[in-house]
Simulated scan of single mutants.
Amino acid sequence: MAKSGVMLVKNNSPETANKKKKYYRKNVEFFKLIEKIKLWPSRTGMLHGIKSIKITGEIAEIITHCDEKFIVWNSRTSRAARWLRNKWCVCACKKCKIPTWKIEKYTSTMMTQKWGSNL
């Protein structure tokens, strides 16, 4: 019993455990963020699943599950970095077949300035 007279109950069901939000910092290194999330936003607003990432210095080669190849620079202010942080992507690629749990996990992830993991 709490002081206010209301009993506190913990709900440990699997549904609430999956709804927990992850917190990442907004200004983490871009390649670390991509390696962690394993999603790539294309210019059309589609989210692609990443099959492999090959990082060479400040440049990375990204190959998606639909066999598209991207050469990207390590920039925190790039279009892709902003789109991932702000979740501006419209839909998921049908060829990549991104599982729904991964999209739900991405949408529940919070990117904050002063709170969260540095990856």
Rank of each mutant, 00 (worst) to 15 (best):
V6M: 02
M7C: 01
L8I: 08
K10M: 08
K10N: 13
K10F: 05
N12D: 13
P14C: 03
N18Y: 15
N18K: 15
K21V: 14
K21H: 11
Y24K: 02
K26A: 12
V28T: 13
V28C: 15
E29K: 04
E29Y: 06
K32G: 14
K32V: 02
K32C: 06
I34V: 11
I34F: 01
E35W: 00
E35R: 09
K36L: 12
K38M: 14
L39R: 02
S42D: 15
S42E: 13
T44N: 15
I55Y: 07
T56G: 07
T56Y: 07
G57F: 00
E58Q: 14
I59T: 12
A60F: 04
A60I: 08
E61N: 11
D67T: 12
E68Y: 12
K69R: 13
K69L: 09
V72Y: 02
W73M: 05
S75I: 01
R76Y: 02
T77K: 12
R79H: 08
R79Y: 14
R85D: 02
R85H: 03
N86W: 01
W88I: 01
W88G: 04
V90G: 00
C91M: 08
C91Q: 09
K94P: 00
K95N: 11
K95T: 02
C96K: 03
W101G: 02
K102E: 08
K102H: 07
E104T: 04
Y106A: 01
S108C: 09
T109M: 10
Q113Y: 04
W115F: 14
G116D: 12
L119Y: 15
L119H: 09
